[in-house]
């Protein structure tokens, strides 16, 4: 049985992505039903009017779990060996997270697929189209990971 606990973290931070990791790893059965998910992802929060500098977070998905979360410097990001990067301005991240918090999961206008399809406000990219395609192949798992934000009391501190 999963012990429900209140998760709190500031966004953007490695602690916030780690809170999603904690929630994912505490719900293995849910993720097992979705199937294997294996990706080295970089989530990028781009600077905008509210936030001064870009922040990048490396997240590793392995089988049914999230096995690694860390903030990446530009040098770290280059060496991370990403499959795909998902990048969006701080304001778009904030809106998505607030939407997930309000609805318990992303509504129709705030899913990762919807937000990234036309490259705005989010952009999905990578160096190798086959590795970028991992995002499509395992999208339910990544959406479920991000929907974990519903359980994280988030403070915004750009």
């Amino acid at each position: 049985m999963t012990t429900k606990q209140t998760l709190r973290a500031a966004f953007p931070s490695a602690a916030w992505f780690a809170a999603l990791q904690q929630r994912m790893n505490g719900e293995t059965e849910r993720f097992k039903r979705l199937g294997f998910a294996d990706s080295r992802a970089i989530f990028i929060v781009k600077a905008d009017a509210e936030m001064q500098r870009d922040r990048s977070f490396g997240v590793v998905f392995d089988t049914y779990e999230c096995t690694e979360v860390r903030e990446l410097s530009p040098a770290d990001a280059a060496a991370f060996g990403h499959d795909w990067k998902l990048e969006g301005p701080y304001g778009a991240w904030k809106e998505m997270i607030e939407n997930i918090r309000a609805h318990g999961a992303a509504d129709a206008d705030h899913t990762l697929g919807r937000l990234s399809l036309l490259k705005h406000p989010f952009r999905l990219y990578g160096d190798d189209q086959m590795r970028v395609d991992l995002f499509y192949r395992q999208q339910s798992s990544f959406q479920e990971y991000i929907d974990g934000a519903a359980a994280v009391e988030t403070t915004f501190s750009p």
Binding site: A105, A108, T111, G113, R114, L117, L118, D133, Y136, R137, Q138, Q139, S140, Q143
Partner: peptide
């Protein structure tokens, strides 16, 4: 993927999310 973009409710969203995952493997 555009179907997922267009979906207006959790049912249509999930249909397209599931089928696009399968299709991406074939590609």
């Amino acid at each position: 993927r555009f179907g997922e973009f267009l979906g207006r409710n959790p049912c249509d969203k999930e249909i397209f999310r599931r089928v696009l995952q399968d299709e991406a493997r074939h590609v």
